[in-house]
Nucleic acid binder design. Sequence first.
DNA 1: AGTGCGATTGACT
DNA 2: GTCAATCGCACTA
Length: 197
Amino acid sequence: MTTRLTRDELPTDTAALARFLIGKVVVRETPEGVISGRIVETEAYVPGDAASHAFRGMTPRTRPMFLERGHAYVYLNYGTSWMLNVSSEAAGIGAGVLIRALEPLEGLALMQAHRGTDKLRDLARGPGRLCKALQIGPWADGLDLCAEGLLWLGRDDHEPGEIGLSVRIGITKAADLPLRFYVRGSPFLSGARALNV
DNA sequence: AGTGCGATTGACT
DNA sequence: GTCAATCGCACTA
């Protein structure tokens, strides 16, 4: 059974939140049924981080990053892939946690249909892929993920395994900061093997 | 008003 | 392993 995370239990520090979210569950309620997956990989985009979209202050796009922790920031990257982030820190501070990969739990058939593949391993391995699998798009931008709705964060009795730490993937600025968290040995990680050890 | 680019993916060699 | 697709946005003028 999966229960919704409350805002109170979310760490107020971005990197701590990124680590906290490992092993938690993303739940998506669609008209066709529930889709869920366990978070196995996250990245922190901390305050003052040159790689963060919020680095140059609030803009129309990054406004959700400045919401109180636990809200969704969804944006399109490379013109092709939607990305799901969880806002962190207090209201007015721009920061967030990128959800990079999920281990599929419920709604496998729906995920397969959305992704156009039946390979379990590839359903939600990567930030763009998981959004496609869960049909997360601009409609979810700014959504409160600690509230009842079509998309929320939950927990069950699962205990994550050993958590690894590495540099973040695919960025050019502040590329050497160790702000990526992942479940060691999970087959559902994105990124090169060297980063997943 | 014009322009360069990115927290990626999937197709192809 | 390499490489093009694709577009909203932030930056410059």
